[in-house]
């Protein structure tokens, strides 16, 4: 998975045609994303024909349909941002730690971010608890705690990190529940957010997390080559002229920013960062120059599709998107374990 690719002596022609195939695949993935974006706006309590979505969005005419569409647009934008953020963060975490089980949800980062947001909201009031900055310290602290517990002063294996993540998450989730249950005001704000949901988020959310997601994505996408070098091991990477420490720092900063922004926007959502890179890797191999763009596109596809499914399966209610991604993504964890190479 994350180990070095044994570069077979490709002819330039074979490499070129592979790039062509992967490039075309990326275009197909983009088309898929457009389709899912359309579905995300079309499907709901009041379905809109897919054909009408575009016109109703471009030229709002005050009709009922265009009002419905306008009300679903922020939710769809949110899904786009968060899906991309989580999938890219997942792939960067996996690359940095050479850990196929890297996922912000599994490694406690999401729980740390949510605990930090809820604590901020309880102390400083609800509005402060929606800013991305409030999520950053918790995300960092949780990641550090998981790493310390998982390594126990020695080398951290993927499985140990996941177990440490489960322990840290359990404590932090209990903290979140203790605070939200004790404070009715906070509880009201966080009821749907705690389980990870695109529904019912204030309209200003998109604007407030957008800059963070963009910065995080740019940082991570620029790291494609250094991450490839890092996959060869620190020593090999250094001999190739890579400053491994700087790559780690930048990658960790970018991934933390993405996780913090995603959690601040929609709550803790697990398994997107695990499942998407695993699927993508199966056809791109471990070259981050392809992995990262594919994850950027297919992350939102998974999250938005999960959100659409969540709206359909539980009518008249709605299943939070976090539950759907858990159901779809958890089997990838089992697959990764079965395939081995996770420190067992």
């Amino acid at each position: 998975m994350s180990t070095a690719v044994a570069q077979a002596p490709h002819t330039t022609g074979a490499r070129g045609s592979r790039a062509l195939v992967l490039g075309l695949g990326l275009v197909a993935a983009l088309l898929l994303l457009v389709l899912v974006l359309g579905l995300s706006i079309a499907v709901g309590a009041k379905p809109v024909p897919l054909a009408d979505v575009w016109s109703a969005w471009r030229d709002p005419d005050g009709s009922y349909v265009s009002t419905v569409v306008a009300s679903r647009v922020p939710r769809t934008q949110l899904g786009l941002l968060v899906g991309a953020a989580l999938a890219v963060a997942g792939v960067v975490i996996q690359g940095l730690t050479r850990n196929p089980l890297g996922d912000p949800g599994l490694l406690g980062v999401n729980a740390g971010a949510s605990a930090s947001l809820v604590v901020t909201a309880a102390v400083l009031g609800g509005a402060a608890g929606r800013t991305v900055w409030a999520a950053v310290p918790g995300a960092l602290l949780a990641a550090a705690a998981v790493y310390l517990i998982g390594s126990g002063g020695r080398r951290a294996t993927p499985v140990r990190l996941v177990l440490a993540g489960a322990a840290v998450s359990a404590v932090l989730v209990a903290l979140v529940e203790a605070i939200t249950l004790a404070d009715p005001e906070v509880f009201d704000t966080y009821r749907s957010w705690v389980v990870g949901s695109l529904a019912g988020r204030p309209p200003s959310t998109v604007g407030s997390v957008l800059p963070f997601v963009v910065v995080g994505l740019v940082v991570c996408l620029l790291l494609a080559r250094p991450l490839n070098a890092l996959a060869l091991g620190d020593e090999a990477a250094t001999s190739l002229g890579l400053r491994a420490g700087r790559t780690r720092l930048l990658g960790a900063a970018g991934a933390t920013l993405l996780c913090a922004a995603a959690v601040a926007a929609v709550g803790p959502i697990a398994f997107v960062g695990l499942a998407v890179p695993h699927v993508v890797r199966s056809f791109t191999g471990s070259d981050h120059r392809w992995l990262l763009p594919y994850c950027l596109v297919l992350g939102p596809v998974l999250l938005l599709a999960a959100d659409v499914v969540g709206r359909v399966v539980a009518r008249p209610g709605e299943l939070p998107v976090g539950a759907v991604t858990a159901f779809v993504g958890a089997p990838f964890l089992i697959m990764a374990v079965r395939r081995g190479r996770v420190g067992l």
Partner: peptide
């Protein structure tokens, strides 16, 4: 025979189970 593997697989099974509980609650 491999307790650590069981635990990680169990985390996945647990996550799927709780997702199913949420589904049941959302429909109820």
């Amino acid at each position: 025979r491999a307790p650590l593997r069981m635990v990680v697989v169990g985390i996945a099974v647990g996550a799927m189970s709780l997702a199913f509980v949420q589904l049941a609650l959302a429909r109820a």
